[in-house]
Structure formats: structure tokens, C-alpha cells
């Protein structure tokens, strides 16, 4: 008999938590089924990759036969592109509940592989979708209350200045006064993200929908103008007691604008020496063929469970967290 190595073979979540997790996943499916939203399970493995500069995917190797010259494929960081192709194909409202993969994202509230709930509502406004996001959260936290706050107001309220009009130099000075930093960066959004995550998020109590993001943080959201005529992104994020839980858009449907944003992301990747991977040309073709106006959102299910069950780390709600996977 050989010695059994002393390994962490046991689950990182307690078994009663895993039972609640199973019920939670079933509850989510029931919720969308009752609302006539179709479940889809699009490919995890794709020939193209998301091009968000700061979301890194896993590159995996495909071989036509064992020993054949391998070809790179990419694990999805979100099912967004595939689901939008379904919208263009006339799917109607759809949701997906499954795993996504993000390279290098590991911490108490990050696991490189996690469960995402993503859904799209053709014909809906962002405001209508935010109501539905509330209902999803309240499946698990029935007493949860929510407020809405514009990104600009949040900075004015907590930091005392306007993120749209304050110069990058002034923002840097402010950041260095409040945080000990040894780096520099010329990307304005990096500084705004830094201040948001370090100084504002810890102050957010309860459910907070942050809306009207800076236009530079639009990603795949439509751009609009706020009351002062500032260009803003039709994007929202939901925070639950300071934890980033969901990210939603009034979806961009303009193929040319989408192509331009893809190119800008690829250029930024190249400038930062980040991997530049193949773009999803099929998404651009689907947009060009016509996509219904939609609102869509992605929600981190493990984080929702974490908050709902009073856990401090993702590991406590995952069968096997990364270190034991």
C-alpha cells in the first residue's frame, strides 16, 4: 500500500452550502422559464476572443488528431458575442447560466473560472432591465433595497470632484494624497477605476445601481449624453454592499461603431504589449445583418450567493476553488 499524499481533496464549500447552491441554480432557471426567456448554452470554446484590454482569456490548444500541429482556441470570458449573434438570428429573449474563464483573476472575490448569469431583453430599456435585476437579487435577498446613482454624482459625493471635467494631472494628485502608490499610468480610466475600487466601493451600502459611466468606459454599451451634454455610456453596474455584482448595457447595435471599438481595443492591446487575438468577425456580420435594440446584463452568480449566504470568500460557495481544482 502506498502512502496517501496529504492533499486538500475536500470541497472548499460546506456540503449544505452546495445544496443551497443547487437550489439557487434551479431557482434562477425557474425564474427565467416562467418569464418565457429561453435558456441557451453557447460554446465555451471559440475561434475568436473578447478584446477588452484588461480581460485576459485562456488560450487552449486544438489538434485535428493526436500529435497534429495545434491551433489556438479561446475559452469565453463571457458569452456576450455568441448570445448577440443569437439575438440577430431572431432568438428573442435569452439567458445563459454557466462557466466563464478569466486568466489571472484570483483572489478572495475572484476565481479564474466562475459562474455567470447573462441575459438579453430585446425591446427593453436599461431601466426595465434594472428592475428585473432587482427581482433576480431578491430571489435570494428578499429584503434587499436598491438605490440608483450616476457615476458623476458618486465621485462628487464621495471624493468632491467631477470625474468628467477634472484633469488627469489633478486626479493623479488626489489619488496620491489618499493612497500610497508607486506606479504611474497615462490611462484616465485606470485612475478612475483605482479611486472607485479603493475609496468609493467600500462606502456603498446595500444595493447600488451606478449608471451613466464615462463614455470611455462604454465597452459594448451605446453612448448617450447626460443632462449637461457630457457623453456617457448607457451602462450600469450593480454593487451589493460594495461588491461589484452585475454589469449591464443598452446594447450597441451599430456594426460600424462596434468595428471601430474593436479596432481601438486591439490598438490599445498592442500599445500595452498585451496579446492581440483574433476578433469575432461573425459578431460584426451579425450586427451588420441587423440586431434588435436590446438591454443585456451579466451577473456574477457566485458573488450573489456569497452575499446571500453571508460568506466572505468565493471559495466558500464553490465546490472546488482554484487552489483545489
Amino acid at each position: 500500500m502506498s502512502a496517501v499524499p496529504d492533499l486538500d481533496w475536500q470541497p472548499s464549500a460546506a456540503l449544505d452550502t452546495l445544496r443551497k447552491r443547487a437550489e439557487g441554480l434551479a431557482l434562477l432557471r425557474q425564474f427565467f422559464s416562467q418569464r418565457q426567456v429561453m435558456e441557451v448554452d453557447t460554446q465555451l470554446l471559440s475561434h475568436s476572443a473578447g478584446c477588452d484590454p484588461f480581460i485576459d482569456c485562456f488560450d487552449v490548444l486544438y489538434r485535428a488528431f493526436p500529435g497534429a500541429e495545434p491551433e489556438f482556441l479561446y475559452l469565453q470570458t463571457s458569452p456576450e458575442y455568441a448570445m448577440k449573434r443569437l439575438l440577430s438570428a431572431g432568438s428573442g429573449p435569452i439567458y445563459q447560466l454557466g462557466k466563464v474563464f478569466r486568466n489571472g483573476e484570483l483572489g478572495q472575490r475572484h476565481n479564474p473560472e466562475f459562474t455567470m448569469l447573462e441575459w438579453y431583453r430585446p425591446g427593453w430599456s436599461m431601466a426595465e432591465l434594472m428592475q428585473e435585476v432587482r427581482a433576480v437579487v431578491q430571489l435570494f435577498l428578499p429584503q434587499q433595497t436598491f438605490v440608483e446613482c450616476e457615476y458623476r454624482s458618486l465621485f462628487r459625493q464621495h471624493l468632491g470632484w467631477d470625474p468628467c471635467t477634472t484633469s488627469l494631472a489633478e486626479i493623479k494628485v488626489f489619488a496620491r494624497q489618499h493612497l500610497d502608490l508607486s506606479f504611474d499610468d497615462e490611462d484616465r480610466d485606470t485612475w478612475l477605476n483605482l479611486l472607485m475600487s479603493h475609496l468609493i466601493e467600500p462606502q456603498l451600502q446595500g444595493g447600488v445601481f451606478v449608471t451613466h459611466f464615462p463614455a470611455s468606459q462604454a465597452a459594448l454599451a451605446k453612448r448617450v449624453h447626460d443632462v449637461d451634454g457630457e457623453p456617457m455610456a448607457a451602462r450600469f453596474e450593480l454593487y451589493l454592499d460594495g461588491l461589484e455584482l452585475a454589469n449591464g448595457y443598452q446594447e450597441l447595435t451599430d456594426a460600424q461603431e462596434q468595428a471601430a471599438r474593436f479596432q481601438a481595443d486591439q490598438a490599445q492591446r498592442a500599445a500595452l504589449n498585451l496579446p492581440v487575438r483574433p476578433l469575432d468577425q461573425r459578431l460584426l456580420a451579425a450586427l451588420a445583418a441587423g440586431q434588435p435594440e436590446s438591454a443585456g446584463v451579466a451577473l456574477g452568480v457566485d458573488r450573489l450567493f456569497m452575499r446571500a449566504w453571508g460568506k466572505e470568500t468565493l471559495a466558500e460557495v464553490l465546490p472546488f476553488a482554484f487552489s483545489r481544482a
Binding site: 477588452d52 484588461f54 480581460i55 489571472g104 483573476e105 484570483l106 483572489g107 478572495q108 472575490r109 475572484h110 508607486s182 499610468d185 490611462d187 480610466d189 485606470t190 477605476n193 483605482l194 472607485m196 475600487s197 479603493h198 468606459q217 465597452a219 453596474e237 461589484e244 454589469n247
Partner: peptide, 23 residues
């Protein structure tokens, strides 16, 4: 070594805004 002095890391937290750079 930070600013010329030896330091011990007591707590390390990964901070990553959904769309932004990691800290």
C-alpha cells in the same frame, strides 16, 4: 524592499474592476 527598507506583507488583496486593470 520598499523605499529602501525591508517590509513584510501582512495581507494581499487582488482588486480587479470588471473592465479595468488589476491592482
Amino acid at each position: 524592499m520598499l523605499d529602501g527598507d525591508p517590509c513584510n506583507m501582512l495581507d494581499v488583496e487582488f482588486v480587479k474592476p470588471g473592465k479595468g486593470q488589476a491592482f
